[in-house]
Write a protein that binds this DNA or RNA. Structure first.
Lengths: 373, 373
DNA sequence: TTGTACGCGTTATCAG
DNA sequence: CTGATAACGCGTACAA
């Protein structure tokens, strides 16, 4: 079933069929109706290859995901929620979202080159950026509209979006500092993905601004998983001068951390304060004690990606200057029981603030309900 | 940069370029080398639309994922691991994997029709099947090779793969029964996705074979999330005659369940036994107490999908009869602390087995290590 | 071994 | 308003 069959069936020319189907003005109302009816009845839709070839555009937007990199963002609850926002924006402009999955045995740079050179998409979003990401260097030299989800040191002028790790670090450290914590460990990822490093440096800076030096022994790396968190806790507990608090870059790691701390008789929230991160994969509100964590709107984030990518595509189409954008996405702290305790030792020498229970400037985790998630 | 440009650059015809690039025999070694070198140097790869149009095949395999349906399988750790296996098999045959994301505001049936009619892929895998799934009815009438990941009542002869819910139910109920549990609740999903129902019925049958009737009050439904599990626990605790054990169809629900049980002073593993499900999203090994759960090889599952889809595609190409397949995927129980306790009441009247500590026919969860995950 | 020419299915141009 | 026809980029049958 192609356009010729449909035209023959209706005893009109393929040109008219095409015009009717594509909503062009110069076709009579009656003819249009006949064509549309017949198309629906016979289950015809245009062959995408033919259409793309002729139009020079595929009507598709790609989102590239890499296997095994940053399992951090390992929830579909993460990416899928973003896809939802993204897709809803693209759909309004008749663009389809397709996800390109770069397998563990494939080279991300080679992969992205093929996507570009084969002209598979009209726009592309790449995720899980590394500090030096050759995909970005390559894409900048092409004329394909793209957005990097994640900062990178690579490339020059290009559009990117990233989570506000600096704000997360600031809110976390501030919260812990006000509660009297002075010896704070940072649990981050051993992956080469950029955000682990960004987060670590943000924490270091926040601590430094309070005259606390983040020593190497307090930087503990592990894989983005429960097992990684468990392993981190083991090394944390082995330290001679044990920290009174730890910030963790991903919530599933917090589960493993909790596990080991409970086993060791050093319960989180009592003997050691714990701050988590994004709740989209594991909602730390349901851990015991509930995990202080951050929330963000991933749907809105997806919408932003869609809207900006549309701008880029539109600008390219019209030949106008490219409206590059850089966006830092906000996250809001939700305080849980894991940071309610004060440090046990005399560390809290300069405790100048009120006890945490009275801190109303933080959003407290509400009682869990079905509707709240 | 298209094939004409490349041919002109080399002072040869496009036909020769095409043959060289596609590894045909009838081209001299020297010419082939020149073409391949130039293609690499100039960054040329064939336009996919032109190639697809000419070949009548896209070289792509689609995997359709639906938003908000069965958040059960909500881990990338779930789908992504499958993609890994699938992609590795497809790559050997020069097929690309693309994921089609059907948004929450899109109709899955309409979505799949477009994929088919526009000839976007040479083969398709659909996931998250419902009991009555019109996608299957539709696909059976088309000539596109496809596999349904998930059983369904829809359609006639077609290939599908599903997890062995019957075996999970059998292992779970058997384990609990041997430990003396007689009053067992089933926590399943309120989604319309098929497996919640399949799992429930499998549990019902297993209980029935032991002369236990699964009453309605012991069937508790909730959303596939921590909040859903929390909610289920609330209703569980409100029952007059409280069950001594509960089986849960998804692990993140177990987190919420644990949370409420701890709050209520009815700790899991002591006052109530809990059995989880697949560990790919949340590894219950790191909960306290560790969750009795099931493991399976999702990479192998993905490989099976790839291999069978290749068979289907190949059969279609050769015009040979379609080698439909039905596959039930095995899961293996890993016993954790959540089912170590015996029921407190006199319920265990007919306890005829040895205490659980001595049951060596079950695989016990090993000490958590980084390597073990 | 290589070059030429056709057609895959579609949309756009242009003449009627 | 409609029909005929060219062109998009490629692969391949056939001729050289």
């Amino acid at each position: 079933m192609n356009i010729h069959d449909l035209a023959r069936h209706l005893n009109i020319s393929i040109g008219t069929v095409s015009r009717a189907l594509n909503g062009r003005a110069d076709v009579s109302g009656e003819t249009r109706k006949r064509v549309l009816d017949a198309a629906k009845r016979l289950g015809y839709s245009p062959n995408q290859s033919g259409r793309s070839l002729r139009r020079g555009a595929t009507g598709m937007v790609g989102f590239m995901v890499i296997a095994n990199r940053a399992r951090a963002l390992k929830g579909e609850a993460f990416f899928m929620t973003i896809f939802d926002g993204l897709q809803s924006v693209l759909a309004k402009h008749s663009l389809d979202l397709v996800i390109y999955y770069c397998g563990a045995d494939q080279n991300p740079e080679t992969y992205v080159k093929r996507i570009v050179q084969r002209r598979l998409v009209d726009g592309l979003i790449i995720s899980q950026t590394t500090r030096i990401d050759h995909r970005i260097d390559y894409l900048i030299r092409q004329d394909l509209p793209f957005i990097a989800f994640g900062r990178s040191r690579s490339g020059g002028e290009h559009s990117w979006l990233d989570l506000d790790f600096e704000s997360v670090a600031a809110q976390s450290i501030d919260h812990l500092y006000r509660n009297g914590h002075r010896r704070i460990a940072v649990a981050t990822t051993s992956d080469d993905v950029n955000f682990g490093q960004v987060y670590l440096e943000a924490c270091r800076a926040e601590l430094a601004s309070r005259d606390i030096r983040l020593t190497d022994e307090l930087i503990i790396r592990g894989s983005m998983s429960e097992a990684g968190g468990y392993n981190i806790a083991e090394r944390l507990l082995a330290l001679e001068n044990r920290p009174t608090a730890v910030v963790v870059v991903e919530n599933s790691m917090a589960i493993g951390l909790y596990s080991k701390l409970h086993e060791a008789g050093v319960p989180p929230g009592r003997d050691i304060a714990v701050v988590g991160f994004d709740r989209s994969l594991t909602n730390g509100l349901f851990l015991k004690p509930s995990l202080t964590q951050f929330s963000l709107s991933l749907v809105d984030l997806g919408c932003w990606l869609g809207e900006h990518l549309l701008e880029l595509i539109e600008a390219k189409r019209k030949g106008s200057p490219i409206p590059f954008a850089r966006k830092i996405w906000p996250l809001e702290m939700v305080v849980g029981g894991s940071t309610m305790s004060l440090p046990a030792s005399g560390d809290a020498d300069s405790l100048e603030t009120s006890p945490p229970e009275q801190k109303s400037h933080f959003k407290l985790g509400a009682r869990p309900t079905e509707a709240s998630v």
